[in-house]
Design a protein around this nucleic acid. Structure first.
Length: 620
DNA sequence: AGTTATTGAG
DNA sequence: CTCAATA
């Protein structure tokens, strides 16, 4: 660990060979999970269905010519015996995805999730340790090697990538043995190449790429569209420049490219085209926003809008409780009817919200939080849509952002109760249904239908902050022998049986208990009381920006905010009730009653790693 | 500096 | 459709 891997000092950043990246991609992920749930399906042709779309299918089905992203009707024609299971509730898939990421984190803390079924792992460190401690010379590649192996690079990458391939093999072995999941893996010295080479041998195989094979791998790509980072828009622009093949992209001059795409994009694409990529494996934490949206044919009435938003909000509250953090702002998104541009012309507005809405009010449950939020949502809506004129919407979305962590210790009684109480308040509201539809693995093949029922989907909380294992000095022996202690029993126990979609699930898997405050012991009552009092002060300090400038276009003005003309230091010390009152009176434009004082920025620039400590310190 | 729009990936 | 990263 005294080795430094400071790539930023390299001049050839992006094309140096000093990292080892493994990309893992689970084979037909949804279908695999379904087969684990019901092993009888293993030998039968199986398809996973969302709406009228076959989002994926197992390899038995593929032998009949069934492909993913087919219409269900077409697939049935091709393979009449095809078994179909609904894949709209993503719960079990998320659960498995989390387990996979957790398992991979034993090899390196640098695990980046891509969707539910892919992971990047930066194993540079583990490779270095292995090379250091393992004197045994013979370096063999596990699995396939892509392309040419004759010419060699002398920077040492050959040995590193060999060890990388062995690590990848061990990862796949453990994923199979402990979770029952088969994966493909790609091993290379950067993310781009690891991902590209991963898919060269499917399924359940792995491939390693050495520098000698890079050129061939790139040139074998069919067109620029298959480069990660080039989507439909960029590929259209490139097309208009007469570029469709990778080779053309490699050879075009930088200037015209810059002209069309801007300097940063142009330079990035040029590098990508020759297999250079300096993207770092960034451990995925919790999402920065949690939202839901619903597409539909038309909505023209305000009352319909309100109804839709209310439903979205209800479901959103569940996700919020599962997430455990407190949002600092809410955003509303709208898509107006527009038959010219098939593409999403969307508009959104957001405003801050007081975190007090999400705290337990002891004794009196926060029944009005919902209404307050709904009011905010409608206000935001009115900023986008002038309802005095007719309007026609095709989509509504609501999302929470600007999260901050709950501030009590993670295992603390309070955090448990807070969670619990929130859950109850949500449940009280109405009964809820958890349902998700996701067009995965499919390049959005038009929801021709109406009512594209809203999707429930959010990143898993496998994140870095839960820090399941600090992984103290892994040696090769460690990962090779693997820790097989875990999981099998665990996953058997909470086996993802028939979870009804209306069932409410906490992320921790803990049961929801009734909590009667008065029955709690005095000590606990006191602790709860105390933390309730301290919560708003801390969270307000962390989460609410002053945003006092009235000139910044559409923002602030109404809705809840930390009163900008109150010294936050003073504000923080006030009792919760008073804080609330201040905020409310401020919100209702009753601003004269507030003392003017200096207002300083409450939020640091980057809410990146949301450690409370960091926030506090950077607040100076 | 903070919001909003666009793009890309799954 | 959800979420991140940019612009």
């Amino acid at each position: 660990m005294e080795d430094d891997f400071d790539h930023t000092l390299d001049s050839n950043y992006g094309s140096s060979h000093d990292k080892v990246i493994v990309h893992l991609d689970a084979d037909c992920f949804y279908a695999q999970v379904e087969m684990l749930k019901n092993p009888e399906l293993r030998t039968l042709p199986l398809g996973v269905q969302q709406k009228n779309l076959l989002v994926t299918c197992n390899y038995v089905a593929r032998q009949c010519g069934v492909k993913k992203c087919m219409l269900v009707s077409d697939a049935k024609r091709l393979c009449p015996s095809l078994i179909l299971v609904k894949g709209e509730d993503l719960y079990d898939y998320r659960q498995m995805s989390t387990k996979m990421t957790l398992l991979l984190q034993k090899f390196s803390p640098l695990v980046e999730k891509l969707g539910l079924d892919e992971n990047f792992v930066d194993v540079t460190q583990l490779v270095a340790e292995t090379l250091k401690s393992d004197f045994a010379g013979g370096r063999n590649v596990e699995g396939h090697v892509y392309g040419d192996t004759t010419s060699m690079c002398d920077c040492g990458c050959y040995e590193r990538l060999c060890v990388g391939s062995q690590i990848a093999s061990e990862m796949r072995k453990q994923l199979k043995e402990e979770l029952g999941v088969t994966c493909c893996a790609g091993v290379a010295y950067n993310k781009l190449l690891a991902k590209l080479v991963c898919s060269t041998h499917k399924p359940n195989q792995q491939t390693t790429l050495f520098p000698a094979g890079v050129s061939a791998l790139m040139l074998n790509l069919n067109n620029v569209r298959s480069l990660p980072g080039i989507g439909h828009r960029t590929s259209e622009i490139l097309q208009s420049l007469g570029i469709s093949s990778i080779e053309q992209l490699q050879n075009i001059n930088l200037e015209p490219l810059e002209q069309a795409l801007g300097r940063t994009m142009a330079e990035r694409l040029k590098k990508l085209s020759v297999g250079a990529d300096d993207m770092v494996v960034k451990p995925s934490g919790k999402p920065q926003s949690i939202g839901l949206e619903d597409g539909f044919r038309k909505i023209t009435l305000e009352s319909e809008v309100k109804d839709k938003c209310e439903v979205l909000l209800q479901r959103l509250m569940i996700l919020l409780v599962e997430d455990g953090r407190i949002p600092g702002a809410i955003r509303v998104t709208v898509r107006k009817y527009d038959n010219s541009s098939r593409y999403s012309h969307r508009e959104s507005r957001q405003c801050n919200i007081p975190s007090s809405l999400f705290l337990p009010k002891v004794g009196t449950l926060p029944s009005n939080a919902h209404d307050k939020l709904l009011t905010s949502i409608m206000k935001l809506f009115h900023k986008i849509i002038d309802i005095s004129k007719p309007f026609h919407l095709t989509l509504l979305g609501v999302a929470f952002t600007k999260f901050h962590e709950r501030n009590t210790g993670k295992g603390s009684i309070t955090s448990f109760l807070v969670k619990d109480i929130s859950v109850q308040s949500v449940m009280n509201f109405q009964n809820i249904s958890l349902h998700g539809v996701e067009a995965m693995e499919c390049s959005s093949s038009k929801n021709a239908g109406k009512q594209s029922g809203s999707t429930l989907n959010y990143a898993d909380k496998s994140g870095s902050e839960s820090e399941p294992e600090p992984s103290p000095k892994k040696t090769r022996a460690d990962f090779c022998r693997g820790s097989r202690k875990r999981s099998l029993t665990e996953s058997d126990k909470d086996s993802p049986n028939k979870h009804r979609s209306s069932e409410l699930r906490l992320s921790t898997g803990e049961p929801i208990n009734e909590v009667d405050f008065s029955k709690l012991s005095d000590g606990i009552q006191e602790e709860l009381m105390e933390s309730c009092m301290s919560l708003p002060s801390l969270t307000d300090k962390l989460g609410i920006s002053d945003n006092s400038s009235p000139n910044t276009s559409m923002s602030s003005e109404d809705n809840f905010q930390c009163p900008s003309n109150v010294d936050p230091t003073v504000f923080r010390e006030l009792p919760q009730e008073l804080q609330l009152e201040l905020m409310e009176s401020w919100q209702t434009k009753d601003r004269e009653t507030l003392k003017v004082a200096n207002s300083s920025k409450c939020l640091p620039g980057k809410p990146k790693q949301n450690s409370i400590l960091k926030y506090v310190i950077s607040k100076k």
